[in-house]
């Protein structure tokens, strides 16, 4: 599968989706002008990946900020993982948050309640 790598900008996150190296990560800030257009390549990649995923899929969210429009996209991604689990695949999410950022921690906890996907909360300084 092709590697999808998108560099971060001041209003959009870095995305690295690399099946061979087992790196699935989104990090940084997400407030792009048009979330649907920005996230389209990522959504397509994940859809393709879901057809033939790794034995264990670990997806890392390392966002420092996301706007409400992006929050809906994050739920769409998590819903895709939920479907993969229903199909018998093993998927887990690592939700990284700055240790002093309560809102980002709570956001992760809320997502973990919304979908049937195992979450590991990871704080960093």
């Amino acid at each position: 599968m092709e590697i999808l790598k998108i560099e971060s900008t001041e209003d959009s996150p870095q995305i690295v989706l690399d099946r061979e190296s087992n790196i699935l990560e989104i990090s940084g800030r997400s407030l792009p002008e048009d979330v649907n257009t920005f996230y389209e390549p990522m959504m397509s990649w994940i859809e393709e990946y879901a057809k033939d995923p790794l034995d264990v899929t670990v997806f890392n969210f390392k966002l420092t900020y996301f706007n409400t429009a992006s929050s809906k996209i994050i739920l769409d991604i998590l819903t895709q993982f939920e479907e993969m689990i229903e199909e018998g695949h093993e998927v887990m999410v690592r939700w990284h948050y700055p240790e002093e950022d309560e809102d980002m921690m709570e956001a992760g906890e809320e997502y973990s309640e919304m979908v049937d996907v195992p979450f590991e909360m990871v704080s960093y300084s």
Partner: peptide, 25 residues
């Protein structure tokens, strides 16, 4: 929180990209 979750699940993003979530947030 419940309203936010419901809006996120049900509210489709319009062509303008808003999901009616801003005020709740």
């Amino acid at each position: 929180k419940d309203l936010y979750v419901r809006q996120m699940r049900e509210g489709r993003l319009s062509t303008k990209g808003g999901a009616g979530l801003g005020f709740i947030d």
